[in-house]
Design a protein around this nucleic acid. Structure first.
Length: 623
DNA sequence: ATAGGGTTAG
């Protein structure tokens, strides 16, 4: 094999499909012909890129025709698979398939997996039933492909294919069992997934990886480490790049930078730091842990970047409030000829929107429109939430109008943001109007939370309780946020007993009360003067957050309890040495009691610590 | 030929 063929093979193995094809096209213009083994590899690159455009496949097809390699059986199957990977070129795949005088089971599999990738599971099943008519027998690859269907969303669908696999006796094939693990995890069937995984005698790196990513997607990042340790201990299988990606992502969701750095070290030892996906996941991990500097170092030092790497870096800068740097990265990306996609725009627009910098958010929104990118729902939703946070009622209404015109106003996410925006702008009746427009209300608790929280913020506690009751009647499961809103409504309307009852409900509905729930109840008790009970509740928490101490301090201010007040203020001073607020409240307590000597002492403390600068701003839109 | 991975709204 020539050196150039080896280069192409290596690039594809590292997932650098675009670079592989670029390298090939340079060779081609110098009239070099790759050997017959290289074409299927190039076609693999095409099929991985073809979700964007089938044009690469077409170019390669033409070259194959000239060299006569197209009739090579493996090559023609690879070609079919490459066309089948994109729904636009699917007819071409079918044409090639139809022209085969005697299709093989591999050719069937190629078309069938195309259907799976495109999310047309029904068509894949129709094709599956035709296999027998050609006197062919489905094999493990057929079953694995059926299991990989993008639109499989129901555990029973997986079970059906699982049964087919059992009948054919291929259920212990590594490909099949791996697809079963991913199939079940994708539908939230972690129990089944675990069962399949545990019962396997033969496990592959891929099987481990599949199981780990299933754990990650289902919200069990800690278990990822468990499996990873098992894998390292058993020495049965060595981790590879994909393993590292899952483990790094687990560190990212846990915000555990210490582990993250260790895995980064391991990646260097394994010489995996040149791999695009490892780089991308490291950038994401460091950004999420708040270390944009490390993320930027990894990003700059890496030779291999792709669109997703750029997007992660931009999003990372944005989430670390480094918007200027995010824009710089964005401009570098454009300079290097990488075309931004909706996720890129979303990071920029959503990032600015979240910070309440509208001018910039709308500026990039306009730029996006000029670039001919249709505004996707995510972006419109971010803009809407930006309007909500800064009470930009007029802009919010414009976005509502836009959504009505393109008929997306009934999307769950969008409607939630819409209700939230109207509520935060104080337009309770408009929020209610949006809510009433739904005949069948979304089963998503967030939608209900926006109404309950909104009524609460606007002081209409009775309506908040009504919506909560309606939510329960509709069998929508409340979540942590729901309880925070309901508890705070109880606290603001002075309904102590009702609040305590709701607090009990949290455990009864199978949730674990979080510090913020304790905070609400502390506030509830504190406001009604039951300071002792409130204090006992605080002691139930292992690590009470500052907010809990603040509520109790507030209650001490109301009921003029200087002892407890002193205790709370000192705790807070320990936690937030830069914040003068607790001391100010404490001095107010002493002042109200007429204990001026204590007031002097606290004032002195404030000056000694150099904390006596206070400033505050608030903003409203005047219609 | 077929399986596993990273970014992204309320």
């Amino acid at each position: 094999m020539k050196n150039s063929d080896i280069t192409v093979t290596k690039l594809v193995a590292n997932g650098l499909y675009k670079q592989a094809l670029q390298f090939y096209s340079k060779l081609h213009s110098s009239s070099h012909t790759p050997n017959s083994f290289t074409f299927p590899i190039l076609l693999k690159a095409c099929s991985n890129l073809s979700y964007n455009s089938p044009s690469q496949t077409q170019i390669l097809h033409a070259h194959l025709f000239k060299t006569g390699f197209h009739s090579h059986p493996h090559t023609s199957t690879a070609l079919t698979a490459s066309y089948a990977a994109n729904s636009r070129s699917f007819p071409d795949a079918f044409k090639l398939f139809d022209e085969m005088p005697q299709p093989t089971i591999t050719a069937f599999n190629a078309v069938l997996s195309g259907h799976s990738r495109n999310g047309t599971r029904g068509e894949a099943i129709v094709l599956f039933h035709k296999i027998g008519l050609w006197n062919l027998r489905p094999n493990s690859v057929t079953i694995a492909s059926l299991l990989a269907a993008r639109d499989i969303k129901n555990e029973s669908h997986v079970q059906q294919v699982h049964c087919l696999g059992l009948k054919l006796g291929v259920e212990f094939d590594v490909y099949v069992s791996t697809s079963l693990v991913t199939g079940y995890s994708k539908c939230g069937g972690l129990i089944s997934s675990n069962k399949v995984f545990e019962n396997l005698q033969v496990k592959n790196v891929v099987t481990y990886n599949a199981f780990m990513s299933g754990l990650l997607q289902n919200g069990f990042p800690r278990l990822v480490f468990h499996v990873f340790k098992d894998m390292m201990m058993s020495l049965e299988q060595k981790p590879n790049m994909v393993t590292l990606v899952s483990v790094i992502s687990a560190c990212a969701t846990l915000l555990n930078i210490h582990l993250g750095k260790q895995v980064h070290g391991l990646s260097m030892k394994m010489e995996a730091c040149d791999h695009v996906m490892v780089v991308t996941s490291l950038v994401d991990m460091y950004s999420k842990c708040g270390c944009w500097g490390f993320a930027f170092d990894v990003f700059n030092e890496s030779k291999t970047r792709n669109l997703i790497t750029w997007n992660s870096m931009i999003a990372g800068m944005m989430m670390n409030s480094e918007s200027e740097r995010a824009v710089e990265v964005f401009e570098r990306m454009i300079d290097e000829g990488v075309l931004p996609d909706p996720a890129t725009w979303n990071s920029l627009i959503g990032g600015f929107a979240q910070k309440g910098v509208f001018v910039e958010a709308f500026k990039y929104f306009r730029k996006m429109l000029c670039a001919g990118v249709a505004p996707c729902l995510k972006i419109v939703t971010s803009l809407l939430s930006a309007c909500a946070d800064s009470s930009l009622l007029q802009s919010g209404k414009e976005i509502h109008g836009y959504a009505l015109r393109i008929c997306v106003d009934k999307d769950d996410f969008f409607a939630t943001a819409l209700v939230d925006m109207y509520m935060k702008c104080g337009c309770v009746s408009l929020a209610r109007f949006v809510f009433d427009q739904f005949e069948a209300k979304p089963a998503d608790p967030a939608f209900w939370n926006a109404m309950i929280g909104g009524y609460g913020r606007n002081g209409d506690y009775e309506s908040a309780f009504e919506i909560y009751d309606e939510m329960l009647a509709e069998m929508v499961q409340p979540n942590g946020v729901t309880f925070v809103s309901v508890l705070s409504a109880c606290s603001h309307s002075g309904q102590v007993e009702r609040g305590l009852h709701v607090f009990k409900m949290i455990r009864e509905s199978g949730l674990d009360p979080k510090p913020e729930h304790f905070g609400c109840v502390v506030d509830l008790l504190g406001r009604s003067g039951r300071l002792g009970e409130a204090r006992d509740l605080v002691h139930e928490l292992a690590e009470p957050p500052a907010s809990v101490f603040y509520s109790l301090l507030g209650a001490c201010r109301c009921y003029l309890d200087s002892n407890l007040g002193e205790e709370m203020a000192m705790k807070l001073l320990d936690m937030e040495p830069e914040n003068p607020a607790p001391l100010v409240v404490l001095s107010n307590i002493y002042a109200a009691l007429g204990r001026w000597r204590e007031v002097e002492r606290i004032r002195g403390l404030i000056t000694d610590k150099g904390l006596d600068k206070l400033s505050a701003v608030s903003m409203i839109e005047v219609a």
